[in-house]
Design a protein around this nucleic acid. Sequence first.
DNA 1: CTACTTGCAAAGACTTTGCAGGACG
DNA 2: CGTCCTGCAAAGTCTTTGCAAGTAG
Lengths: 130, 130
Amino acid sequence: MKSLKKAGLIKTQPRMLILDIFEAQEKKHLSTNDIYMALQRNKTPLSLGTIYRVVNQFEKSGLIQSHHFSPDNAVYELCAADNHDHMIDIRTGKIVEFHDEIIEKRQKEIAEEYGLDLVDHKFILYGYFN
Amino acid sequence: MKSLKKAGLIKTQPRMLILDIFEAQEKKHLSTNDIYMALQRNKTPLSLGTIYRVVNQFEKSGLIQSHHFSPDNAVYELCAADNHDHMIDIRTGKIVEFHDEIIEKRQKEIAEEYGLDLVDHKFILYGYFN
DNA sequence: CTACTTGCAAAGACTTTGCAGGACG
DNA sequence: CGTCCTGCAAAGTCTTTGCAAGTAG
């Protein structure tokens, strides 16, 4: 269980509810609307405005990370220790995570070559799963 | 000069103007607003609606490619033969392109391992340029 | 001529924000 | 109790679309 206090955020009911959603979900990548609907199902609804505010705070605090895989909307996931990349099925939207040391190592070399002080990266493979 | 006809599009004035903007620009990654303003400067203004329609047609025809580097807006660039990746300076927004064979090769291996029929990929490095 | 395109303004989707009331420490 | 948080609804972006007029072949 991630800590709100460590993240510098007061422990409030809405924030705990949203954090719970992330930790309870089998699906790891959630849009604001996914969160909204999950809260409805749990009979603990929150306003969309609050959800947007909370995920933005969580992201600034480093609790979660946002991705813009599709132009339409952002999805969020809990920050994991390993830094993994993503494969996306174009047809179904299914997301699979993977981690690859060769990629990790090579990206650092490339950044160095170009004089880039690397902060983050994004590596996404799009295609169709068999 | 890319061909509108080959792309299956009638050669109209607005479409030629927009294609010219892409080919004339030192900056390769343009937002709809960049295009809009460049056309204003050229004294050949077009409506934003038309620009959105045209870039969407161009993208479907494979003439240009869209990127969503920032959550705010999409940018477009002419499709090049080489398939390159991007580095982005977080502070300035500067974009640098690169191509790396190790990455290209490794991505194919990873896709194969996971049973993904690879269609496209995106590899972006974020950081600060020295 | 006939079909496809364009401009304009309205509509849409997603996200942010102001304000008054409510919860936290 | 003062401060930070929430709900609600309004406002903001960026993008898409309907319709009537214009252009291409």
